[in-house]
Design a protein around this nucleic acid. Structure first.
Lengths: 226, 226
DNA sequence: GCTTTCAAGTGTCATTAATACAATATTATT
DNA sequence: AATAATATTGTATTAATGACACTTGAAAGC
C-alpha cells in the first residue's frame, strides 16, 4: 500500500508583457484540462528539482515564445491555500518584457494548452486561479520599476525613436506625458545613445534613432516619472 | 515497497530587525542539528498545508519572539538547487521590524534550536545556508522602503522623539542625516502626530513626543531620503 | 518646383523640492 | 547665577519638476 504524501507543489508563472498594435499586452494560454478547463491563464509550470527559480521562469518563457535572454524579474510568491482547487500549489511569479515582433508563439499539446495569444492588459478575459491578481500586481510593479530604471527599452527594437519610447511609457503608465519634459528627462539620464541614423519609412519628417546604452542599465539610479 | 517521491520542500525564513543598544540588530537562532549544526541562522520553518505564506511567517515570528501584529513584508523567494545540502528546499523569505523592549525571546528545544539572540547586522557571525545573502538583500530592501514609507516607526515605542526617529533612520541607512532637514521632511509628511507631552527623564531639555498617525501609513507616497 | 501636410524637434519660466549651514531656547545640575 | 547638554528653529542656494507653443524638415500632392 502506498503512503499518501500530501505536500506542497511549487510552480512558477510568468507574466509576459509586450507592446503590440499600440497596446500593452500580456501573453495568455488557454487551458486544455481541469481545473479551469477552457479558461485563459498565465503560462506557468512546475519547477524542476535541478533548476533554480530564474531558470524555471526562463524555460517557461522559452517554451511559449521561443525567446531567451530577456528582461525577467521575480515578482512575488503567491501561496494562499485556496488559490488552487484541491491541492496546495504555491507559485513564484515572474514578469518579463519582450518585443513581440521577432517572436512566434508556440506550444505543444502535451503541455495542456490549446491556444496561446496576446491579450490587452486593460481588457482581460476571466482568468484561471488568482491570475488576475498576479497580473494586476505585476503591472503595479512594472510601473514602479519604470520610475527607476528604463525597462521600457526591453519592449522596443534595438534602434528606436524618442516618440516610440515615450509611447511605451505612456502605455505602461496609462497616462499621457509631455513630449518636451519626457525628452529632457531621458536624455539627461545618460542611458541613451544618440545614433546618426534616422527613420526611413513614413511620409513625414524622419526621426532620429537612439539605442540603449547597456553598460549603465543596472548602475542607473534616480527617478524617471512619478 | 515505497515509492520514493522526490519533491521540493518549501519553508519560510524571517529576517527580524530591531534597534537595540543603539544598533541595528537581527534575530538569529543557533542550530541544534545538521546540516550546519551549531551555526547561526535566520529563524524559519516549513509552511503548513493550511496556512498562507504571510501567516507562516507570522507564526515563526510568534514562536521566536512572542509578538504578533507587526510589520511584515515578503522579501524574495530563494530557490537555488544548491542552497540546501542534500535536498531541494525553496524558501520564501520575509522581513519584519519590531521593538525589542517589550519582548522576550523564546524557543523550545523541539524546534532544533539551542539559542536565540540578537546580532548586529554590520557584524554578523558566519551563517548557515544562504542566510547571509538573505539578510543583505533584506537590508537593501528595507532601505528602499524607508524612502517611501516611514517603516522606521515600527522600531520605536508608541511615543518617541524626533531625535529617536532620526537615529533609527541613521542606523538603517548607515549614514548621518542633517537634523533640520530631517525634521522638515518628516513633519511635512503628515504621518506624525505632535503630542503635548515631553520626555521626563534625562537631565537636559525635555524633547517633545510624537506618535505615528496610522491612518496614513499605507496611503503615504513620496520619498523620504535618497 | 511650389505648397501642403504632419510628425519631429526645441526653450523658458514658474514652482517646488533638496541641500547646506549655525544660533537660540530650555531644562537640570552645580 | 553660571554651566552643561540636548532641543528646537530658518534662510539662502541649488536642483528638479511641470506647464506651455512655435519652428523645422521631408514627403506627397498639385
Amino acid at each position: 500500500m502506498f503512503q499518501e504524501i500530501k505536500t506542497h507543489e511549487i510552480t512558477t508563472d510568468v507574466v509576459i508583457f509586450t507592446i503590440k498594435d499600440n497596446k500593452l499586452q500580456v501573453l495568455l494560454v488557454k487551458r486544455a484540462n481541469e481545473p479551469f478547463k477552457g479558461r485563459w491563464a498565465i503560462p506557468g509550470g512546475f519547477i524542476r528539482l535541478s533548476e533554480n527559480l530564474d531558470n524555471a521562469a526562463l524555460r517557461i518563457l522559452k517554451e511559449k515564445t521561443n525567446v531567451d535572454n530577456i528582461y525577467l524579474e521575480q515578482l512575488y510568491t503567491f501561496g494562499d491555500p485556496l488559490r488552487y482547487p484541491s491541492s496546495r500549489v504555491i507559485t513564484c511569479a515572474y514578469f518579463a518584457l519582450i518585443r513581440s515582433d521577432d517572436i512566434k508563439l508556440s506550444f505543444d499539446t502535451s503541455q495542456g494548452i490549446t491556444e496561446v495569444q496576446w491579450h490587452e492588459v486593460y481588457n482581460l478575459p476571466t482568468l484561471a486561479f488568482d491570475h488576475k491578481e498576479i497580473i494586476e500586481y505585476s503591472i503595479k510593479r512594472m510601473r514602479e520599476r519604470l520610475e527607476f530604471c528604463p525597462i521600457a527599452f526591453q519592449l522596443l527594437p534595438e534602434k528606436f525613436t524618442l516618440t516610440e519610447l515615450q509611447k511605451s511609457y505612456e502605455l505602461i503608465l496609462d497616462m499621457k506625458l509631455d513630449k518636451r519634459n519626457f525628452r529632457k528627462k531621458v536624455l539627461t539620464g545618460s542611458v541613451l545613445k544618440e545614433l546618426n541614423e534616422y527613420t526611413k519609412l513614413g511620409s513625414k519628417r524622419p526621426a532620429r534613432l537612439y539605442s540603449f546604452d547597456n553598460i549603465t542599465l543596472n548602475s542607473k539610479r534616480g527617478h524617471f516619472f512619478s
